[in-house]
């Protein structure tokens, strides 16, 4: 436990010194601020760039559009950046051999994996809360209201999906010693999920629904009840992936 706490501290200091924390907060902060602004200013931009006639045919933007932009930015590009940012989670230290020292001095390998996961989840949580909070504040000012159902739940679902991706990334990272291996496996699994999305009924069970059905949940075309199987499967997969990551990491050569 002390090893875990010490290694977690080291991970967080590393996140600060390598600018990872700073980058994540600035990027997600920009996403959070720009989403409602983009929704609000789209008609004006079309009016000045294309033609006022076309802009007049577009319905006036609302808080729903602001959150649609939020899920477009954070739920797609944001998750891509999250994965790329942390793709070197194990590879950097494996290639430098710096883990050998601490592990031979008695730090358990499970603690290494858990501490790395904890620090990534903490940074993801902070970034997502910042982005969602800024979108909430901006939407409140620009559109006067945030009165949308399931707003918090849909953000929590996106958070769960982010944690799932990070667990997947850590598990994939234990399989190779190059950050491209981790990145490729993660992308491959997401691609499988995207292909499964072709089957209409699969969204009940697809973990990807947690990052793609958020607006459907807010607008009411999908209910939380529809997504329970997907939520359960995702949570189960997180546990399995973390256990697998620790199991594989215990057996591998550092």
């Amino acid at each position: 436990m002390r090893g875990y706490a010490a290694f977690l501290g080291k991970e967080l200091i590393e996140a600060v010194r390598t600018y990872k924390l700073f980058l994540m907060l600035v990027i997600f902060g920009v996403f959070g601020m720009s989403s409602p602004l983009l929704a609000k200013l789209t008609p004006q931009m079309i009016a000045s760039v294309v033609s006022p006639e076309l802009a007049a045919t577009i319905p006036a933007p609302s808080a729903v559009d602001a959150w649609t932009q939020f899920y477009k930015n954070v739920g797609q590009l944001g998750l891509v950046i999250l994965i790329i940012m942390f793709s070197g989670v194990l590879a950097n230290e494996l290639s430098k051999g710096t883990l050998v020292n601490v592990v031979t001095k008695g730090l358990s390998r499970g603690a290494v994996i858990l501490a790395k996961l904890t620090s990534m989840v903490a940074i993801w949580t902070g970034s997502l809360v910042l982005a969602a909070g800024l979108t909430w504040v901006y939407t409140q000012y620009l559109f006067g209201s945030n009165a949308l159902p399931h707003l918090v739940v849909s953000v929590v679902l996106l958070w769960v999906f982010g944690v799932f991706l990070l667990s997947l990334l850590v598990c994939a990272a234990t399989l190779g010693s190059n950050n491209w291996v981790a990145l490729l496996i993660t992308v491959a699994v997401v691609a499988v999920g995207l292909v499964a999305g072709i089957i209409p009924a699969a969204y009940h069970y697809n973990p990807l629904s947690l990052a793609s059905q958020n607006m459907a949940l807010i607008t009411g075309t999908v209910t939380l009840g529809d997504l329970w199987p997907a939520i359960g499967i995702t949570l189960g997969l997180i546990v399995v992936l973390v256990a697998a990551a620790i199991g594989i990491f215990r057996r591998r050569v550092l």
Partner: peptide, 9 residues
């Protein structure tokens, strides 16, 4: 609203 965005960038 645009100023904080510009500052961040």
């Amino acid at each position: 609203f645009l100023i904080p965005l510009a500052i961040a960038q």
